[in-house]
């Protein structure tokens, strides 16, 4: 709110046109989401119903959890391609531990999150200790490794019949609101505080802004990167837990290409691929835009193939708008 009043004050003298330009550049993706929702409301009478909105909230939550994890590597000018595979491995291990080995839901949940964080840690170590040139490579490797192990452990068979405690996050509701969406709100709030108010959080932006300047300012860059990839992996485990709750099954091909949707959400949400720029709430809006778009196209009976095409166009359009904006601000 204070940001808004500030920008209002600072542009008072510059006339209305300027004001709108600033507003659009600051809240552009939110505006896009609202316009999208208005259009869908007009085009389909089934869109703006409690039932459907509940659906969108549920459908968006897994991607939202992966995307907020993905935001961190992208802020450091990196990427994490392994989250979809880590998700699959985490839930397979959870299935094996809690069901096949009958160690109970608590141990299962812990195993799920620990595998996620552990694989993330591995990503971080590969990047910083082996000095692999770019996280695209290290996470491309672990993406295949994690998926491979997920397939190996049960011989590609799914595991079903999870206890209530494991299903809780993904299946329960508080009134009309899915618990998974409440989880998203809580997680995003925590991430917002982490990224804006904690030392490590600010260091993440610094490293993305200029790694060498950050190092020479006394920042332990390796340590921060390891934390970043560990958190991203942990979020993949958490998203897996929600997925299992929703479908009551763990299967080794779960989360296939989910990393791409997560990257899309972060980019649509205004983060820069070159690091240093991006916000938590932008990412949430990015994830919601993708979910609303998918949902809307479903309501309008658009085929899945065509949906992919549309989402591809949205990604390009969103980034292009950003490019135009930056070109403008730089030439000023």
């Amino acid at each position: 709110m204070s940001e808004l009043t500030e920008s209002v004050e600072s542009v008072k003298s510059q006339g209305k046109e300027q004001f709108w330009k600033k507003l659009i550049s600051k809240f552009g993706s939110l505006l896009a989401l609202i316009i999208l929702m208005i259009v869908l409301t007009i085009m389909s009478d089934r869109f703006l119903t409690v039932n459907n909105l509940t659906n969108i909230a549920r459908q968006s939550s897994i991607n939202a959890l992966l995307a907020i994890g993905m935001l961190l590597p992208i802020l450091t000018a990196g990427i994490d391609l392994s989250v979809g595979s880590i998700l699959a491995l985490s839930i397979m291990i959870m299935g094996v531990v809690s069901i096949n080995l009958q160690m109970g839901p608590v141990v299962g949940i812990i195993a799920c999150l620990a595998i996620g964080a552990g694989f993330g840690l591995l990503n971080g170590l590969l990047l910083t200790k082996l000095r692999l040139p770019h996280p695209f490579i290290s996470t491309l490797g672990t993406m295949n490794i994690a998926r491979g192990i997920a397939l190996i452990i049960t011989g590609a068979a799914p595991i079903a019949g999870f206890p209530y405690m494991i299903q809780f996050l993904g299946s329960e509701f508080a009134g009309p609101i899915p618990i998974s969406f409440l989880l998203v709100i809580v997680v995003y709030t925590l991430f917002h505080i982490f990224l804006t108010r904690s030392q490590t959080g600010r260091y993440i932006y610094a490293i993305g802004g200029n790694k060498e300047a950050a190092r020479l300012s006394g920042i332990n860059v390796d340590r921060v990167l390891i934390i970043v990839y560990t958190i991203s992996g942990f979020m993949a485990g958490l998203a897996g837990l929600v997925l299992v709750g929703r479908v009551n099954s763990a299967f080794p091909l779960a989360g296939l290409t989910y990393e791409l949707d997560a990257i899309a959400a972060v980019i649509i949400g205004g983060a820069s691929f070159f690091g240093g720029v991006g916000t938590v709430w932008g990412t949430l809006i990015g994830a919601l835009i993708i979910a609303v778009l998918r949902n809307g196209l479903n309501l309008l009976n658009v085929s899945a193939d065509f949906q992919m095409t549309v989402i591809g166009l949205v990604i390009i359009a969103a980034v292009y708008v950003d490019v135009l904006r930056q070109r403008k601000s730089k030439s000023n």
């Binding site: 802004g209 200029n210 300047a213 020479l216």
Partner: peptide, 8 residues
């Protein structure tokens, strides 16, 4: 290249 975070 070593002193500033230009876009912050």
């Amino acid at each position: 290249s070593e002193g500033l975070l230009l876009d912050l």
